[in-house]
Simulated scan of single mutants.
Amino acid sequence: MRDTTSDGELLRAIAADRDRRAFEELYRRYAPWLTARLRGRCADAAMVDDVVQETFLAVWRGAARYRAEGHSADAAGWLWRIGARRLVDALRGDGARGRLRQALARLRHREEVSAEERVLAGVEHGDLAGALTRLSPELRAVLQATVVDGLSTREAAVLLGIPPGTVKTRAMRARRQLREALA
């Protein structure tokens, strides 16, 4: 039988009392979900497992920030933001450039060039980086949240403190400006 305690109550118990049972329940609820989402972004199962553990360690050490940040009921979005950032940090480690070069090498041996391959080639040669730096900070922040971190529009809106409609509009503008810059 599943515990009926709300996610917010669990997080408050973890923050206020270091309640191990509350932490274990939160882990049972969200670790499989977080693992599945992160594996969609990274094929290295060991790295994903490490990131999930680091995410929950961060919750144990700093759950009070959840309450202080004012996230009333979106524990999943909060956990995803922590996990996504930890995954990005792990991928930026020493091996990330090597993995990108290997992926590009594999892509170059195929006859058909996809849009993803063109973007990866742009990253390798700096075209995309230059185009991204020319975007306004507001547009870059939306791309970071929705593309790099993989957040939904609603999650990005919470993270950035703007309405979901504004996230969608800024994402459209950013994509249009990038297309023009990379054309």
Results as ranks from 00 to 15, higher is better:
L57P: 00
G77S: 05
L107F: 01
R140F: 10
R29H: 09
I14E: 06
L26P: 11
V119A: 13
S72M: 00
V148H: 12
K168W: 04
S114K: 08
A31G: 04
V88Q: 12
A129W: 07
C42M: 04
W60Y: 12
V51F: 05
S72T: 12
A90L: 06
D7R: 01
R2N: 08
M172T: 12
D49M: 01
G150Q: 11
M47E: 12
E155V: 05
A15M: 09
A103N: 09
L79Q: 09
R2C: 01
R99N: 04
A141V: 10
V52K: 13
S6M: 03
T35I: 00
R101M: 14
S114Y: 05
L107G: 11
R28H: 11
L104T: 02
K168L: 13
A145M: 08
I14P: 04
F56C: 11
R21G: 02
A31C: 08
R173Y: 03
A36F: 03
R86H: 14
R37K: 13
R37T: 03
I162E: 10
R81C: 06
S114C: 09
G150K: 10
R39H: 10
A76Q: 08
R134N: 05
A58Y: 02
R118W: 11
G8W: 03
R29T: 09
R86M: 04
G161A: 05
R176K: 13
G70P: 04
L87Q: 10
S136V: 00
R2I: 10
R29M: 12
A15S: 15
D19W: 14
E112Q: 15
A43Q: 13
A121E: 06
E124S: 09
Y30D: 14
T133P: 00
G98L: 10
R106Y: 07
A31D: 11
H71V: 14
Y27A: 14
R29P: 08
Y30L: 08
A156G: 05
L87H: 11
Q177F: 04
P164D: 12
P137N: 06
D19Q: 09
F56W: 12
R21W: 01
R20G: 00
D149K: 08
F56R: 12
L38C: 07
V148W: 11
M47T: 13
R140W: 10
D7Q: 03
A64R: 15
R97Y: 07
R29Y: 10
C42Y: 01
L91V: 10
V123N: 05
A45E: 15
D3S: 13
E24Y: 00
R170P: 06
E117Q: 15
L26D: 09
P32S: 07
R41Y: 03
V48P: 06
S6K: 05
L107W: 02
T55V: 08
F56M: 13
D44G: 00
R85P: 02
L10E: 05
A31F: 10
F23H: 09
A63M: 12
G95N: 09
D17H: 11
A58W: 10
A103R: 15
P32T: 04
A75L: 12
Q102P: 00
R176H: 07
S72Y: 01
A105C: 02
V158C: 02
R41S: 07
G93E: 13
E111L: 12
D94T: 11
